[in-house]
């Protein structure tokens, strides 16, 4: 792997290599010394054009546990907010000698452009409404740890599919790894062209829940309401929110996942979010292990392609 830009392009072997490597990284978190010297002397730049303390911190912890130098380059308050172009920023990072650039950007595809302009590895930490590959990898890792496998599982992804990079990345990755993915949303939030995705689409959450091994809830932004994607918050919650009754309709072993940040009371009820079936907190811890794995696999060897 040279870059990690999407899960759509990730092969099954590469995806499994990340998950297996993450298993090793997870053991580091249990040690008294949580640091490895592996990436000593390497520079990782966190280039965030959107605020995301959660994701940025996760990458920062991951890079530091591998002894990399971390530079946080946030768009706010820097030359970027003064109109500097992405290309100029890329050239600045080049001059700093960045070995890897972790890029979060509001425009879909921005990391693809960056990858053409820098010599180092580019990690997509979320681009617009396109992909968020490390989130999907950590979700897959979490499912595999809890349920022991991915092959043959039924995973239901519920929410704003149209605007969700998490949904896209999970849909590709989980289907690559042999899970059956069902997407549930009001028809307004299902993209035109979804027929070509390796997933089923349903508008009826209650029909899908009893057959789901994992239910992944997506954040629904309130501003979607004003754009007429659905009439009211109350109606959305009634039809697509996960509450205790719906949790009870799921198989007893089924998991509830949420990439965060959650809108409690909207797509997920508080008691569901905090239940033992919920993996929300584990997902955060697993995020560090998976990101360590990705950093190691991208930076832990020679630059030359083998």
């Amino acid at each position: 792997m040279r870059h990690l830009l999407s899960t759509e392009d990730l092969t099954r072997d590469d995806a499994l290599r990340v998950l297996d490597t993450a298993e090793y990284m997870a053991t580091v978190a249990d040690r008294s010394v949580k640091k490895l010297p592996t990436l000593r002397g390497r520079t990782v730049v966190n280039l965030f054009f959107e605020d995301s303390t959660r994701t940025r911190t996760s990458f920062e912890v991951a890079a530091k546990r591998l002894s990399a130098d971390v530079i946080n380059f946030s768009a706010r308050g820097s030359s970027v907010s003064k109109g500097e172009s992405l290309k100029d920023t890329a050239q600045t990072l080049e001059a700093m000698g960045a070995d890897a650039v972790v890029c979060r950007h509001p425009a879909s595809g921005a990391p693809y452009r960056l990858a053409r302009w820098v010599r180092g590895s580019v990690l997509n930490a979320g681009d617009g409404t396109h992909e968020h590959p490390t989130q999907a990898l950590l979700d897959a890792f979490t499912i595999r740890r809890r349920l022991g496998r991915l092959e043959g599982l039924s995973v239901t992804i519920v929410g704003d599919l149209l605007h969700s990079r998490v949904a896209r990345s999970n849909m590709w990755l989980l289907s690559t790894l042999g899970a059956r993915v069902t997407l549930v949303a009001p028809p307004t939030l299902v993209p035109v062209g979804v027929e070509q995705w390796p997933a089923e689409v349903s508008y009826d959450l209650d029909a899908v829940l009893p057959k789901s091994d994992v239910v992944m809830m997506l954040r629904v932004q309130r501003e979607r309401m004003t754009a007429a994607f659905f009439p009211t918050e109350r109606e959305y919650t009634r039809r697509y929110g996960l509450d205790a009754d719906r949790l009870a309709a799921m198989p007893p072993s089924a998991l509830v996942m949420h990439p965060g940040p959650m809108v409690r009371g909207m797509e997920i009820a508080s008691d569901v979010a905090d239940s033992t079936r919920s993996t929300v907190v584990e997902q955060v811890a697993n995020g560090v292990s998976v990101r360590m794995a990705v950093l190691y696999l991208l930076l832990g060897g020679t630059r030359e392609v083998t």
Binding site: D20, T21, T27, P37, G301, T302, R303, T306
Partner: peptide, 18 residues
């Protein structure tokens, strides 16, 4: 593996069990 000093001279090594 994670403590080797020659990582950057070779392709990425898969990690083994500790």
């Amino acid at each position: 593996t994670m403590h080797r000093d020659d990582l950057r001279f070779r392709a990425v090594r898969p990690l083994e069990v500790t």
